[in-house]
Simulated scan of single mutants.
Amino acid sequence: MSGLFNDFTDAFAKRNNGLVQIILINVIVFLLLIFAEVILTLSGKTGIFLLIFDQLRLPSSLHELLLKPWTLITHFFTHRDIFHILFNMLFFYWFGKLIDEYLGNRRLINLYILGGLAGALAFLIIYNTIPYFQNQLGSMVHGASGAVYAVVVGAATLLPEYTFFLFLLGPVRIKYIAAFYVILSFIETIGSNAGGNIAHLGGALLGFIYIKQLQKGRDLGAPIDAIVNFFQNLFKKKERPPIKVTYRSQNQKSYSNASPAGFPDEDEVDEILDKISKSGYESLTKEEKQKLFRASQKQ
């Protein structure tokens, strides 16, 4: 057990490990809920479990939401069914790897959180404005699907021609995979899981908008970065900055003319393009792919 605990703590201590950390949070919450359900059910106290579960789910009633505002966040880390969490985490892993590789760990986390919030917003608006759903105001929603759909559609918007090899189907471009699940969710908005499918669509729309805005140089995740940095700084010890010693030989290449705002300069981009022409796009490292994406943002 100590080895398993160390694996968990190592995963959270590791920098730029958001993909695994988000999956672990979902799995830990799921296991705790399952454990609580089994123990309380065997004890004849199922009602207590349902009360705990409802503290994590997002209610459609705005009055109830005011009493439980934390559910805007907790609902997209909460699962009760094994297949629900299994498929959500598999999709998040497959498509999240692409976002992490091309845009970086920080933007993957931002996209997941924004997608979950967008799914919640869509659920609340629809259930409180459209007559068909207003008779169902006791409904609640839970699960990471809205956040996952944001990542899926975000990856398909960023890399529409990227191909997955699917069992029995062979190579399929991810834009078609994303489109299939978005259409399916739209059809199911009048089904038994209407609230969940509305959250899917809200997350999907956010994923599309997020990538399109990012390609124009606007990062919608900046407020989340600011909040995370604020809390990190609260617990960070103030340290003296280390003395920086630099050395440059006469033959060393100078990058003093590098572009501002984190954009790579022309020499770096040329080197990356040369590497693509010689060895193909897949030969690029994660950092080179991210540099190429940033270069594409310069207008």
Rank of each mutant, 00 (worst) to 15 (best):
N17P: 11
L234V: 07
D54L: 07
L65A: 04
P160G: 10
V27M: 12
F293P: 14
N26T: 12
G202P: 08
L166M: 15
Y149V: 01
K14W: 04
A13P: 02
N88P: 10
E266Q: 12
E37D: 14
G203P: 09
F231L: 13
G217I: 11
F123C: 06
G47W: 06
F95R: 12
N105I: 00
D81K: 07
K286Y: 04
F293I: 12
F76H: 12
L220R: 10
Y281T: 11
A204V: 05
D267R: 14
G207L: 03
V148R: 09
Y149E: 07
F180S: 14
Q252K: 08
L90W: 02
Y93M: 15
G154N: 05
K236D: 06
D225E: 03
G146H: 04
G115C: 11
L65C: 07
H142C: 09
I125K: 03
R107T: 03
L137A: 06
F180E: 09
K175Q: 12
Q213G: 01
Q215G: 08
L108R: 11
N135Y: 02
F180N: 09
V29Y: 03
G116V: 02
L24V: 04
P264S: 04
E268C: 05
D225V: 03
L40W: 12
Q55E: 11
I85H: 04
P242W: 02
F231N: 06
L56V: 08
L103M: 15
P69I: 13
G104L: 06
F53M: 04
Q136Y: 11
L117K: 08
W94R: 14
Q250T: 09
V153L: 13
G191W: 00
E64M: 10
S145N: 13
F263R: 03
I272F: 08
I125M: 04
K45S: 10
F92C: 11
R57V: 05
Q252Y: 07
S283V: 05
G170Y: 00
G154K: 06
V141P: 10
L292Q: 07
A199Q: 00
I177T: 04
S259P: 00
I276D: 12
